[in-house]
Computed example of a mutant assay.
Amino acid sequence: MEHTAILWLLLQQQLNIPPARLRALMRLVACPRQLPGIDPQQLQQFVLQRFGEDAASQQLLDQRLRDDIVESLADTGAVQRLVEQLQAADCQLVSLADSDYPWLLSEIADPPPLLFLRGRRELLAATMLAVVGSRRPSRRGEQDAYAFAGALAERGFTIASGMAMGIDGAAHAAALEQPSRSVAVLGCGVDTCYPRRNQALYGQLAERGLLISEYALGSPPLPHQFPRRNRIISGLSVGVLVVEAATNSGSLITARQALEQNREVFALPGSIHNPASRGCNALIRQGAKLVETLDDIYEELPALPAAGAAERVAVDAAGAEPALLALLEFAPLSLESLAARSELPVPSLLAALCELEVSGWVEQCRGGWQRCR
């Protein structure tokens, strides 16, 4: 645990320093103990270079703040309490001033000055690709997320996501089976599991992956914190793959932030009849890369080796399509309508549908049955 990161946390909590100001101070010096004695000319030069001629050095570090910093840093009891709190929660801390702060994240407009960590800290240096999407995906969407995340992790990517239900959870689960593992960025403290139904996944990420949050220990999962955390998911990653997202999905916030951060955005296309695909289809219309195979991702990331045909993730075309599929659509069809179309007895029809479901061709949903592929 970096001692300087603890000192930055102490100043943030005791002096209520806003994130933007704290970031500037971290870029000014490596250790907060240097702040009270910094040369005024050095300070003024830094402010001019970073904020322009209209900025005043006193707005960043005036004498009152210098005195407050001296007083706070002299409180060794408070420092020790913070250390004990982090140790009790099995957490670590990294600051923007630390050498192992993720360099991609440090380049975004508003990187979090402090990150709370639980798990494998060395994953901060990994090459990450985010996989995000609907909390209520179709079965096929969940399968696609699992397949793509697993294949990307097998090729060396560490998969980043938000540990939500649905697509996030499937992506984490697949990546955790590979050595490159997975990173989850939380919208609450890293000592809090949200949603609670992902308790098992939370434990696996803490043991074999990495949990990250900019929010202090004990912070509850408040709604406004999740859009903010999405910028970290995209900021950590070289690109973002969106798998099923409605038009009002938080995944689209992540995609928009990725574009603002000059990251690659990829999207899996879906049926025009599936509301969960409209966000992905809209992203593709707006310029996101349409993805059908891993090669579609690799060709936008030339630093990585291209996948061979055997490694492609795509619709399984092996074997002829079952005849019953011709009667199904990519929108729900009631059992009664399907029975009328097929002229099959209902028991025989249900048996055939169950076989197709096991094979991944169809899924049962509200309103009946529909094709997955």
Rank of each mutant, 00 (worst) to 15 (best):
5 A>D: 01
8 W>C: 14
10 L>V: 12
16 N>V: 09
18 P>H: 08
18 P>F: 10
25 L>H: 01
27 R>C: 09
33 R>E: 11
35 L>V: 07
35 L>H: 03
36 P>C: 11
38 I>G: 03
42 Q>P: 00
43 L>R: 00
45 Q>T: 12
46 F>Y: 10
48 L>P: 00
51 F>L: 06
57 S>L: 10
62 D>N: 15
63 Q>E: 14
64 R>A: 15
65 L>V: 03
65 L>D: 08
79 V>E: 14
81 R>T: 15
81 R>Y: 12
86 L>M: 14
90 D>N: 15
95 S>R: 11
96 L>N: 08
97 A>H: 10
97 A>E: 02
100 D>M: 13
103 W>Y: 11
106 S>H: 11
107 E>T: 15
108 I>L: 03
109 A>W: 04
112 P>H: 07
116 F>N: 05
116 F>V: 05
118 R>G: 04
125 A>C: 08
132 V>A: 01
136 R>Q: 11
142 E>C: 04
142 E>F: 03
144 D>F: 04
152 L>N: 10
154 E>L: 14
173 A>D: 13
175 A>W: 05
188 C>T: 06
193 C>Q: 01
199 Q>T: 12
200 A>V: 15
203 G>F: 02
210 L>E: 02
235 G>F: 04
242 V>F: 01
248 N>V: 13
253 I>W: 05
256 R>N: 15
262 N>M: 14
266 F>V: 12
269 P>W: 08
277 S>D: 07
293 T>K: 07
303 A>G: 13
306 A>H: 05
307 A>K: 02
311 E>L: 10
316 D>N: 14
320 A>Q: 09
320 A>Y: 04
330 F>Q: 10
331 A>K: 14
349 L>M: 12
353 L>I: 13
358 V>D: 01
362 V>W: 05
364 Q>G: 12
